[in-house]
Design a protein around this nucleic acid. Structure first.
Length: 537
RNA sequence: GUCCUGGUAGCUCAGCUGGAUAGAGCAAUGCCCUUCUAAGGCAUCGGUCCGGGGUUCGAAUCCCUGCCAGGACGCCA
């Protein structure tokens, strides 16, 4: 049990002595350490219901807490805060815990093994991965890492949209590019795909088959392109350190009859009707602004229909929660998808949709439009070549997905060496160089360290697990990024204020143990956002 | 027009979902390497938290309203 939990329990115990059992005790780390290691506002929360002065309530709680083992002192402050100061020697306990647990330090059982499916990236295989996709991919991947560290049973999943019109279009586009290579007239469709990679696919076909394929149907070009583009996407994602447990194909969902199955289920439940030659879902019964077409009057499925089947498929696989990570341009789609899930008889909370806001791409202050159709896209590979993978992953992980983001390439390249990722990496490398030629020995008691800067580090390390839990619960990976930055900051400050390597063994040993703990926590935290912790810089 | 996100220092953004004197990085200025990595540290400068109401012990945070920016509103995908 960590120190925070111990204190929380003490507060709950003393409240129960006052016959209060249902209070929400929230412990926070005060921004100013003059206010202790932990603080609670519980007395102020209770003031109105108890009809007492919060200062008096706080004093009562304080009087009832007797724990000399961990608590140095408790202060009652201004409007009614209770500030807890931890015994300094107890702060050191965490060092041994970190060293013993190593890569596992910070792990939580919060998730209780609940099964979560996180679907993200899912870029249509009609082009390559661009910068906008990269943000969502980084977010989804970070979320998976954090959730599984927090004790959830996580499946990361990519949905391959290989069954709809857009794929047919891709096939046509490839074929037309191929015809050009054969010296024939090209008839690129208006809504075709004009990306460079489509031409590359056509070139590959030409290289392999010369003019043999002129008589082949579009289907062949489609399959060839799909295979090729999907391979490129997979590799790009792998380079970006994003991997998936499951790849699900829309085509397969269609072939397996899952669509008919889900339509049947909806119809059995009385959630569909026919009008104007089309089949409709009664989405407006579930908070959507209007009903939605499932089967168009030409007999084709609407976009949402295979998607409903896909979500039903995920539910049938037994997940407690489904998380979809979608781009902001799809947010209008969310109510109808949720409506479909509810219509199928499941709670709408079963599906959680995280919307990733747009990345506006600039070069020297001027916006570059990201469209797969113009061919003028900045790909993940372009980005990685210019700024490097760690800087890119860190950059995406710094920001809340709910804010729109301007990405100025010129700035990113020019400033890549100023990216905060190097601040954190540097802290890790500094610590490594202290540790690499020196052995440490376990100690029972830390006798020589009495520096405020060291206590700051220890307080941070103590907090790690709580940050992991909060990031998992709120689905906010950037909390980890903020945390690791603060820890690196505490390390740099300490490093500049106190000498670590000396001839005195005890003195040096105690500090090296502290450094070992710092190194482990930085590495564990960076791992949660897909960033490597270098030993040298 | 309706709906979804944002609006915090010159710039890019945090602010732990209601707490104590609103914080970082970059930019600007001045210090600190004969000592473990100066990609670092210390200090200074910089704010109408978009405007206006409200809720309460307490609001950048919650509610209402106005303004600005981006996005979404198909039997497209």
């Amino acid at each position: 049990m960590n120190i925070k939990d111990i204190i929380k329990e003490e507060i709950i115990k003393s409240l129960s002595k006052m016959d209060i059992f249902e209070a929400m005790v929230d412990l926070e780390v005060p921004s100013d350490k003059k206010n202790g290691h932990y603080a609670t506002n519980i007395a102020m929360q209770l003031a109105s219901s108890l009809k007492q002065n919060p200062m008096d309530i706080a004093t009562n709680i304080k009087e009832m807490i007797k724990n000399d083992e961990y608590i140095e002192k408790i202060e009652v402050a201004k409007p009614g805060f209770l500030n807890f100061f931890i015994k300094k020697d107890k702060l050191f306990d965490v060092i041994e815990e970190v060293i013993d647990l190593g890569d596992d330090y910070g792990k939580s059982q919060m998730g209780e093994g609940k099964r979560i499916n996180v679907e993200f990236a899912s870029v249509n295989p009609t082009g390559v991965i661009h910068l906008g996709h990269a943000r969502g991919s980084a977010y989804g991947d970070n979320l998976c890492r954090i959730l599984s560290f927090a004790g959830y049973d996580v499946t990361s999943e990519y949905y391959i949209n290989d069954g709809g019109n857009q794929i047919d279009n891709m096939g046509i586009s490839v074929k037309e590019r191929y015809r050009t290579l054969c010296g024939l007239d090209e008839h690129m469709p208006e809504d075709g795909y004009y990306g460079e990679e489509i031409i590359d696919v056509a070139k590959d076909i030409y290289r392999e088959y010369k003019e043999e394929w002129l008589s082949k149907p579009v289907e062949c070009f489609k399959d060839y392109g799909l295979n090729k583009l999907l391979t490129i996407i997979k590799n790009d994602l792998l380079t970006f350190r994003v991997d998936f447990d499951v790849w699900t194909s829309e085509k397969k969902i269609r072939q397996d009859g899952r669509i008919e199955e889900s339509l049947q289920k909806l119809s059995d439940l009385g959630k569909t009707y026919t009008e104007d030659g089309a089949l409709w879902l009664k989405a407006s019964e579930y908070g959507d602004e209007k009903d939605r077409v499932l089967v168009k009057n030409d007999g084709e499925y609407a976009y949402i229909t295979p998607d409903i089947a896909y979500h039903l498929d995920k539910i049938d696989r037994g997940y407690d929660t489904l998380i979809d990570v979608l781009g902001a341009d799809h947010h209008g789609y969310v109510p109808r998808l949720k409506a479909a899930i509810e219509a199928l008889g499941y709670s709408k909370d079963k599906l959680e949709v995280k919307i990733v806001q747009m990345v506006r791409l600039l070069r020297g202050g001027e916006e570059i439009k990201m469209s797969k159709r113009t061919g003028n896209v900045v790909t993940v590979n372009d980005l990685l070549e210019e700024v490097g993978i760690d800087a890119a992953r860190y950059y995406f992980a710094m920001r809340n997905i709910e804010s729109q983001m301007d990405f100025d390439l010129e700035l990113a390249i020019r400033k890549s060496h100023e990216n905060p990722v190097y601040y954190v990496s540097y802290a890790h490398a500094r610590v490594h160089s202290l540790l690499k030629d020196n052995k440490t020995q376990k100690v029972k008691e830390y006798k020589t360290i009495d520096s405020e800067y060291a206590y700051d580090i220890l307080a941070k390390i103590n907090e790690f697990k709580n940050v992991v839990e909060l990031a998992a619960e709120k689905r906010l990976p950037h909390l980890i990024t903020n945390y690791v930055y603060d820890l690196a900051n505490a390390l740099h400050i300490y490093y500049n204020h106190e000498k670590i390597l000396t001839k005195d063994f005890q003195y040096t040993n105690e500090r090296l143990l502290l450094m070992t703990a710092v190194k482990i926590v930085i590495k564990n935290a960076l791992n949660l956002i897909g960033v490597e912790a270098p030993n040298e810089m």
